[in-house]
Design a binder for these strands. Structure first.
Length: 304
DNA sequence: TATCCAAGGTAAGTT
DNA sequence: AACTTACCTTGGATA
């Protein structure tokens, strides 16, 4: 086992681990105390979280188990390998969130959201797992979306040993494509089961790779992702924002639709693409997705 | 205890 | 192209 600490003062801006991994951006992390989405982390936010990381271009060549918690000195980690680059990648520790906050519009709603959840960062999930997670998110609560991903991993993913326990990686496209619709329904995916199976098949067969969207311009990338089954504009925007680094993407989910109706009625333009452009402009353009994530989290937790 | 409802939407079928 | 409707599942609210 390797271990280490990423010192807080090495980061550009602050960091809030719980807000980052429990804000509905990623469904690939788990809390060791099993209380994901249910309570404030024990001991003032010092709960351990863990995930199994697939091979990532330029970051890691093999699967790794990573465990992290936030302590006063910074981000403490334990892993099967050196996890500094992995964590920097997955949790976007290289983002200068003070600069992003400064560049965002000075409006009461936005400022309150940044204030309330200071230190929350966007995530950078592995593309395939992110795509499947958000196909599963349709009409679903966060706790159950998370449960679906857990069951997919437990049932169909490779095992990895770490710290005396057996972990399961998120299934590869081949592994998911090989399952039947009913096997996926048994994991409580409901009507999303055939979407997941067919999308996995598309990736496994080499018909399309979600990671390739990264090379396109924003709106073309969104259009590209909608070729996958079960992926409309909203899910596509989530993958662009939470995996592929399109920080300008603003997923128009129910919470943001409500925010538009209540705070930015002029942005209501009818179609998804038009409304999306308007709210993206309203949220400052380049980092509009960061603003969206803060506002989403703020509103979902009862803020007005 | 039974019933109802909504949850970070999408695909397929109609105008 | 814009508008409707069906779709799995289940925890929590309501009767």
């Amino acid at each position: 086992m390797e271990r280490g600490v990423i010192a807080t003062d090495e980061l550009a801006g602050s960091f809030d681990l719980q807000s980052t991994v429990e804000s509905g951006q990623s469904y690939l992390w788990s809390r060791l105390d099993g209380k994901m989405y249910t309570t404030a982390a024990a001991h003032g936010g010092r709960a351990w979280y863990e995930t199994v990381v697939p091979p990532l271009d330029g970051v890691t060549d093999e699967r790794a188990v990573v465990r992290v918690r936030q302590v006063d000195e910074g981000i403490e980690w334990k892993s099967t390998t050196d996890a500094v680059d992995i964590l920097t990648h997955l949790l976007r520790l290289d983002d200068d969130i003070d600069a992003i906050r400064d560049a965002s519009p000075s409006e009461p709603l936005i400022e309150r959201a940044f204030e309330q959840y200071a230190g929350m960062r966007l995530v950078r999930d592995p593309p395939f797992a992110c795509l499947i997670s958000f196909i599963c998110s349709a009409q679903m609560r966060v706790g159950r979306i998370h449960g679906m991903q857990q069951r997919l991993a437990a049932g169909f993913g490779e095992t990895v040993a770490f710290d005396g326990r057996t972990y399961h990686a998120f299934p590869t496209p081949d592994q998911l494509a090989a399952r039947t619709e009913s096997e996926l329904r048994e994991r409580s995916l409901g009507y999303r089961a055939p979407y997941v199976q067919r999308t996995a098949e598309m990736v496994a067969d080499g018909e399309a790779d979600p990671a390739n969207a990264a090379e396109l311009d924003y709106e073309a990338a969104r259009e590209f992702l909608t070729q996958f089954v079960g992926v409309g504009d909203k899910v596509a925007d989530c993958v662009l924002l939470f995996s592929l680094g399109f920080l300008e993407a603003v997923p128009l989910d129910t919470w943001i639709q409500t925010a538009i109706a209540d705070y930015y009625p002029d942005c209501e333009q009818g179609g998804y693409a038009e409304t999306s452009r308007a709210i993206r402009e309203q949220f400052g353009g380049e980092y509009a997705g960061y603003v969206q994530t803060y506002v989403f989290h703020y509103l979902r937790n009862g803020g007005e």
